[in-house]
Measured scan of single mutants.
Amino acid sequence: MIVFVRFNSSHGFPVEVDSDTSIFQLKEVVAKRQGVPADQLRVIFAGKELRNDWTVQNCDLDQQSIVHIVQRPWRKGQEMNATGGDDPRNAAGGCEREPQSLTRVDLSSSVLPGDSVGLAVILHTDSRKDSPPAGSPAGRSIYNSFYVYCKGPCQRVQPGKLRVQCSTCRQATLTLTQGPSCWDDVLIPNRMSGECQSPHCPGTSAEFFFKCGAHPTSDKETSVALHLIATNSRNITCITCTDVRSPVLVFQCNSRHVICLDCFHLYCVTRLNDRQFVHDPQLGYSLPCVAGCPNSLIKELHHFRILGEEQYNRYQQYGAEECVLQMGGVLCPRPGCGAGLLPEPDQRKVTCEGGNGLGCGFAFCRECKEAYHEGECSAVFEASGTTTQAYRVDERAAEQARWEAASKETIKKTTKPCPRCHVPVEKNGGCMHMKCPQPQCRLEWCWNCGCEWNRVCMGDHWFDV
């Protein structure tokens, strides 16, 4: 396979590697080409510095992935760790964990309700045991953590790749202090920090972006993250068709209702045909949960890209028209025109101005929308079919299609509260000796007794199943 190397943020060049090629071997190839010592090179990928003893497969490097290699003399205490030698983080029983690669970060837990604080980093599902597709590297999971809308060759929703760059020099040479644990960490600028490894760059702020994971991409090709779309790892039924499908869209209502993408497309087109989208002054033209839940309008309007190009163009047109109407304007009634106009409040005669090729020149009556006339309008008909009709959803289907309910059931079956801080902690095999993952707590306690870890627990039921 081919990976592209950008040395000291210059133009990239291809390097041929195998899945079992080590990072140090990659350094040696680059060092020979650039005429520099291999031990002064640092390989940066997806916000993480890659260790010498890791392989291309370990690092989730795919065909035509772009890695950054910078030349920086080692500072005291760094060289041993980078070589894969006596790194205290690798000691058996050590409590410190390697910062998780962005290629394996899962933010789907952050669609849980606000009262489930902490689960994004504490609760991990076991539903990723799908067998890898044919042709994928051994052991590589097909679980997708992110979804994007690819405006490039795909023109559809695709699995996405999370990447990070330095907000100062805009190069992907920043190593994160810690990985993101929720969508806010990724979507809110300057929320996460790190250290830029580019020479002479003092940058410390992280800037995240997404790429389409279905095809090789260049540095400049980015895609918009659709953070309401998630892999259906909890096997929730769709609120409309009641099938279990994946991926799904999880509405931001209190129940976190789930809808499959085909039904979401149908829901949007139906509402669009009836012009029953909601115009929100802050958000724009949007839709609420299909069950009509309060405070559930979709905030990231790129989710409506699921409509496809033709329907999305209609959505944008109707949204612009609705904006004009909300501002007190009118639409030209001549067939084939429909231009938005903003006449004076007491102006009865409205002319669709033909300047700049935008208007048709038609003069019409503001009251009856017919060709302009003197005197009273002959008839004014009330528009028919403008009443909002509820999208029919079966109550039982709505009850079963809740992301929140599956989460709470998982928590109930696989977790116990920490005796000190009461945060839910998952036990997935292993011994009875637990350690609270909350940095402010870190209590060592017994899963069996529910009390602080002691010699009695150690001698009596340390390794009970």
Results as ranks from 00 to 15, higher is better:
R420E: 11
Q63M: 10
I259N: 01
N448L: 11
E309S: 13
A339W: 09
F463A: 00
E309K: 08
N356A: 12
A405P: 13
Y149D: 03
N144R: 08
G459W: 03
T240V: 15
C457D: 00
V258G: 01
H200K: 12
T175A: 14
D20H: 09
N58Y: 10
G284E: 03
D262W: 04
C377P: 02
H227N: 15
S65E: 04
S246G: 03
G152T: 11
F45M: 05
Q326T: 09
F463T: 00
G194T: 03
Q64A: 13
Q316W: 07
G361M: 08
G213L: 05
G357D: 11
C289V: 01
L443W: 05
Q311K: 03
W462Y: 15
L228C: 08
P345S: 13
R191D: 02
Q64T: 09
S22N: 07
A38S: 09
C182V: 07
L331V: 05
D185M: 02
H279S: 08
C337Q: 03
M432K: 04
Q64N: 14
R128V: 14
A320M: 12
S131D: 13
V70E: 04
V36T: 05
P73C: 06
G385W: 08
C166G: 02
V248C: 05
V117A: 13
K427W: 10
A397W: 09
D106I: 04
L287M: 02
A363L: 12
L26R: 00
C289E: 00
S223Q: 07
P419I: 07
P99L: 12
R104I: 06
F4E: 10
G179R: 06
A134L: 10
V30K: 00
C332M: 02
L272K: 00
G152I: 06
S108N: 13
G94N: 11
R348M: 09
C95M: 14
Q438C: 05
L287V: 12
T237I: 08
Q316H: 10
E444S: 15
R392V: 09
F251L: 02
S223G: 07
A371H: 10
S233G: 07
S127A: 14
L249H: 02
D62R: 14
E49D: 03
A383R: 13
S246H: 05
Q155S: 11
A31Y: 01
V465H: 15
Q282W: 06
H257F: 01
G160M: 00
C241P: 02
W462H: 15
A398D: 08
